[in-house]
């Protein structure tokens, strides 16, 4: 997947969860959404892109940090 596309997607998700919520809560909800909806290879690629990518909004950045810290390798080649 193009990095730009994944960054755009996670920013959009963060936009939704961020409205009217505390940033930490929003970041956690963004992370949960990504974990439940994104295939493993997409999450792995997001981890590779990393939280330092300049295109990430603040909530998305925090979510990627959490993703890097928590995402375990998959037991199925998804």
């Amino acid at each position: 997947m193009h990095a730009e596309l994944l960054v755009r997607m996670i920013n959009q998700i963060a936009d939704f969860y961020g409205s009217g919520s505390e940033p930490d809560v929003a970041a956690q909800e963004t992370l949960t959404h990504v974990q439940r909806m994104w295939a493993h290879r997409m999450r792995r690629q997001m981890v590779e892109i990393g939280a330092a990518d300049p295109g990430l909004g603040p909530i998305a950045r925090r979510a990627v940090e959490l993703l890097v810290a928590t995402d375990a390798p998959s037991r199925a080649a998804g």
Binding site: R75, A76, G78
Partner: peptide, 17 residues
């Protein structure tokens, strides 16, 4: 598998990848 799979647009991206 307990992992979410690819959606159609993701399949296209992965095919190009």
């Amino acid at each position: 598998s307990d992992e979410p799979g690819l959606r159609i647009p993701n399949m296209f991206e992965a095919a190009l990848d």
